[in-house]
Computed example of a mutant assay.
Amino acid sequence: MSANLFQLPMDLPVPVDDGAAAHLEQVLLPCISLPSTDGTTVNLAAMEGQWVIYVYPMTGRPGLPLPDGWDAIPGARGCTPQSCGFRDHYKELKQLRSGVFGLSTQTSEYQREARDRLHLPFQLLSDSLLQLKHSLHLPTFTAAGMELFKRMTLIVQQGRIKKVFYPVFPPDRNADDVLAWLRTDSQPDVTGDAPLAVRP
């Protein structure tokens, strides 16, 4: 029987801060181009303005079971509610001059199904080669033979990581936490009404 992807179990284990993201603040994004669900590529180092990049393990699909033991892995469950949170707060994020990307190790084809089914107004980036694991030392875990990113959210301003949310829990409140931080933090030195991404 497949799980209800929109509802989080009450007894999910809470992830602990293992220090695996402590090195990321103030780090510049690497010159890596990742495929996007709109068919373009995004050069992370060339991103202008302010962006929220939420890094997640994987979205489930209706009718398909999640990997065995998925709910018992701290921080694994909740990619669909997290994505829906950023969808529901997308207009507020745009008002704060912030763009949004989701990022995972799934292929763009796999991600496109989730984007369309969940009616996400933003794109998802595919790092199926785990380039960010090697360039930024992003933490990963293994489930069902797949190496997946641990859940974290990055606030990027002019290509530099300004803020890291790690661990992220509960995932369905991540967008609210990001908005709260953006509203209290001093606004970045960016121009224009919307963020820009340079796509080679």
Rank of each mutant, 00 (worst) to 15 (best):
L132V: 00
S108L: 03
M47N: 06
R97C: 02
M10S: 15
Y166K: 02
G192T: 08
T37G: 08
D172A: 06
A22E: 04
I73Q: 05
K150S: 01
S186E: 12
T40N: 12
L34D: 03
C31T: 14
N174I: 00
D11I: 09
R151L: 06
S128N: 12
R87D: 13
P167R: 08
S36L: 14
P139H: 08
R160T: 15
T191P: 00
D71V: 01
G99C: 05
A197Q: 10
L129Q: 15
R183F: 01
L24A: 01
S2H: 11
D17V: 04
S126C: 13
L5A: 11
W70R: 02
S83G: 15
M1F: 10
Q26V: 10
T37L: 11
L34S: 03
W181T: 04
D38N: 12
T80D: 02
H137P: 02
G60F: 11
P200T: 04
K133C: 06
S83I: 07
E92C: 00
D127F: 09
I161M: 09
Y54V: 01
H134I: 10
A114N: 14
S2G: 06
C79H: 01
S126G: 14
G159T: 12
D176L: 08
Y56L: 06
A72N: 09
L66N: 07
K94G: 00
D88H: 04
S126V: 05
E48I: 04
R199Q: 15
F165I: 03
Q131F: 11
V42C: 12
T80A: 03
P35S: 11
D176C: 05
H23F: 07
D88C: 02
R97D: 01
P9S: 11
A194M: 08
L136C: 12
L130V: 04
G159P: 12
T59M: 13
Q131R: 15
K94E: 08
H23N: 10
S128G: 14
M47R: 07
T37R: 07
L196E: 07
T37D: 04
P139C: 07
E147Y: 09
E147F: 05
A197N: 10
I161H: 00
D88P: 06
P57Q: 08
Q7D: 10
L130M: 14
T105D: 06
Q111L: 15
L8A: 08
L148E: 06
S33K: 10
P81Y: 08
T105F: 06
Q111E: 13
P200V: 04
D17H: 12
L44T: 02
D177V: 03
T153Y: 01
R173I: 03
A175V: 04
Q82K: 09
A76H: 05
D189S: 13
A45Y: 09
K94W: 00
L148H: 06
T140S: 05
R87K: 15
K162Y: 14
T184Y: 01
I32F: 00
Y90M: 07
L12H: 06
Q123L: 07
V27Y: 02
K163D: 02
F6D: 11
T153I: 11
A197F: 12
M58L: 15
V164K: 01
P62K: 14
T105A: 15
N43I: 03
R87M: 13
A76M: 09
A76L: 08
S98V: 03
P67I: 10
